[in-house]
């Protein structure tokens, strides 16, 4: 009666299990570790940082292709739209195309990044994945969007911040590669929320005080009576409180940090803390959040080997302070960074 070990078990737990005196437990864990380490080696190959683009300069134009899974759980599916094509009759296809474009645009125009890998990676997306599929994800090389069940969730291509969130998982994969567990996992989630929100703000031309700071606004279906979105960076824990969805579990500060083994150690829960720190920084500095606040976060995420893949909140916070000093010297920016982290209870110095 031994469980089959899989992705849900973090490597450090597997390491322990592999040393178990029960041979069935240790054998199973050891095999999973071997498999995982193969996967990680592959990932490491794709995440070598600072390596020059293969040949020539990557294009300043996105190269987007949309595929249709035709309600099966397959990717990529049938090709239905290429970069230069006229708009499709399928609004989902057009939304995916536009969302990929908005993401490409922010990363290029504001941060000088050429696509997800900074080497002009073509952007592929599969829409209509599965039946009533309530999710969207970056599968390591492309985007996948479900249609939602039309009851709790609508089409996942609707909010541009959801598209930006998922594509940012690709950027993280190619840069800091934050491990998707515990605090580093919550940072991985938070960085996706931050840039997802910035992509929306940049597309709408909204300053920090005009933005809604919501993640997934417009995604909730007709059966959700009390909810505005899935997460709020402005007020974590207040996005929904509904009889079907339950209550938004996000904390805003370390006082309410949630210790759990569920959700990979609460990656979608505790991300509320760094999310709120970013919100506080951006609104304190004022103006467009993607400019100074966004640049500090981007430099921290992509700053080479400084940010460890298993970084905790405090390590990330210290590096944002270092980034603020490097970019802007001893001014308002560094003071605002220190104040934001202090407000959420994370030491940054």
């Amino acid at each position: 009666m031994h469980p089959v070990f899989c992705t849900i078990v973090p490597p450090h737990v597997l390491d322990k299990l592999a040393q178990s005196e029960d041979p069935a437990v240790s054998e199973s864990a050891r095999r999973t570790l071997e498999h995982d380490s193969l996967q990680r080696t592959r990932r490491r190959i794709t995440t070598l940082r600072g390596v020059a683009a293969p040949t020539g300069t990557p294009s300043d134009k996105p190269e987007r292709t949309i595929y249709d899974a035709e309600h099966r759980e397959v990717a990529p599916g049938r090709k239905v739209h290429a970069e230069g094509d006229a708009p499709s009759n399928d609004t989902t296809v057009n939304r995916a195309h536009a969302g990929l474009g908005a993401t490409f645009e922010l990363f290029l125009k504001v941060y000088g990044r050429h696509s997800i890998d900074d080497a002009g990676l073509p952007l592929d997306a599969t829409v209509h994945y599965g039946e009533k599929y309530d999710n969207a994800f970056w599968d390591g090389s492309q985007m996948v969007f479900g249609d939602g069940d039309n009851d709790l969730f609508l089409d996942f291509t609707i909010p541009v911040d959801v598209i930006g969130h998922e594509l940012t998982h690709g950027v993280t994969q190619h840069t800091a590669n934050l491990e998707y567990y515990g605090q580093s996992g919550a940072l991985n989630e938070s960085v996706s929320d931050v840039f997802g929100s910035l992509i929306k703000q940049y597309a709408l031309g909204q300053s920090a005080d005009q933005a809604d700071w919501l993640i997934g606004a417009g995604l909730l279906g007709p059966n959700v009576d009390r909810g505005v979105a899935l997460r709020s960076m402005k007020a974590p824990g207040t996005a929904y409180d509904d009889d079907v969805l339950g209550k938004d579990p996000q904390p805003a500060t370390m006082d309410d940090y949630v210790r759990t083994s569920r959700d990979n150690g609460g990656v979608h829960i505790n991300s509320g803390i760094p999310n709120h720190a970013f919100y506080l920084l951006a609104t304190d500095l004022g103006g467009n959040a993607w400019e100074r606040a966004g640049k500090i976060w981007y430099a921290t995420l992509t700053g080479g080997e400084l940010l460890a893949s298993d970084a905790d909140f405090a390590e990330f916070a210290r590096l944002t302070a270092a980034s603020a000093r490097t970019l802007f010297g001893e001014g308002d920016e560094i003071q605002a960074v220190l104040k934001a982290w202090s407000s959420v209870g994370v030491p940054a110095s």
Binding site: F5, C6, I8, H35, F137, W138, H165, H169, Q173
Partner: peptide
């Protein structure tokens, strides 16, 4: 041996 690595935001 379908115990493969998941993806961020993928269902577990």
């Amino acid at each position: 041996g379908t115990a493969v690595t998941g993806v961020p935001d993928g269902f577990r």
